[in-house]
Computed example of a mutant assay.
Amino acid sequence: MTKILFTVMLALTLFPAAVSAADNAFVREADHEYTWLAGYGATHREFGATRTDVQTFTNILRYGWFLSDEVGKGNWYQGRHELLLELPLHMAVNHDGRVMTGGYVLGSWKFTSLEEMVPYVFAGGGVLFVDLGLPTMGTRLDFSYQGGTGLQYFIKKDLALTGEYRYHHVSNASTSTPNEPLNSSILLLGITLFR
């Protein structure tokens, strides 16, 4: 999966004219976005208190609601505030296909000063039901915080390819012992429809 993500992002970088059919003008006026993302994640063993190797195939359904008109026109930070609501499904491929699922609420800033691309940053958190069978996590009801960056590349007026990296933390927030956290990196690729 990592090779596929790398190949697509490389193609978008080297051959933008071949895949781009529109600029990002529509995102400057859109009210909502609907995104499907899929990708691969892996824990960073020895990062913080993380000791367990967990590799996940991740699917995320996202709804985005723009909270502002364009701010900072003419500046490098020109963009829009957005609230993201996500339904994640993290399937642990090296733990018999066991899952983590729940919901995330994230804040995002979309930079709108470029023509064909929209870079963005985001951060937030949520609640996860964790069924990985790891006694070191202490409980099945866990919490997550995360942050990352992404790039949306427009292929039609209201349609963009989306690539994203996120740092992802899961733990029980010291509500139970033991409390081994899962600190991971997740790479995602998907498609976004703006309305």
Rank of each mutant, 00 (worst) to 15 (best):
M1H: 07
T2P: 06
K3E: 14
I4A: 09
L5P: 03
L5T: 05
F6V: 12
T7S: 06
V8W: 10
V8Q: 05
V8L: 11
M9G: 00
T13C: 01
L14H: 01
P16N: 01
A18Q: 09
V19M: 04
S20H: 12
A22H: 08
D23M: 00
D23P: 02
F26W: 14
R28D: 11
E33W: 00
Y34Q: 08
L37Q: 13
L37T: 09
A38E: 12
A38H: 09
A38C: 07
G39A: 01
G41E: 11
H44S: 06
T50E: 07
T52R: 03
T52H: 06
V54T: 11
Q55A: 07
T56Y: 12
T58L: 02
N59Q: 13
N59L: 08
R62Y: 01
W65N: 05
F66H: 04
V71K: 11
K73N: 14
G74M: 03
N75E: 06
N75R: 04
W76K: 02
Y77D: 10
G79A: 01
R80I: 11
L85P: 02
E86V: 00
L87H: 10
M91R: 11
V93P: 04
V93D: 06
H95L: 08
H95M: 08
R98M: 05
R98P: 04
R98W: 09
V99R: 07
M100E: 15
M100C: 10
M100N: 15
T101Y: 14
T101H: 11
G102Y: 14
G103D: 02
V105S: 04
L106V: 03
G107E: 07
G107T: 04
W109T: 03
W109K: 03
K110A: 04
F111S: 01
T112Y: 09
L114Y: 08
E116L: 01
E116A: 03
V118D: 00
A123P: 10
A123L: 13
V127E: 11
V127W: 15
V130P: 15
V130R: 14
L132M: 13
G133L: 10
G133H: 13
G133R: 07
P135M: 04
P135Y: 10
M137L: 15
G138H: 07
T139A: 14
D142N: 15
Q146S: 08
Q146N: 06
T149D: 03
L151S: 00
Y153A: 00
F154R: 00
I155E: 06
I155G: 05
I155Y: 12
D158Y: 10
D158S: 12
D158R: 10
A160S: 12
L161P: 14
T162A: 07
T162Q: 11
H168L: 12
H168I: 10
V170A: 04
S171W: 13
S174N: 15
T177A: 11
N179V: 05
N179Y: 09
E180I: 02
L182H: 10
L182K: 08
S184A: 15
S184C: 13
S185M: 06
L187K: 06
L188Y: 15
L189W: 14
G190K: 05
T192Q: 02
L193C: 07
F194P: 03
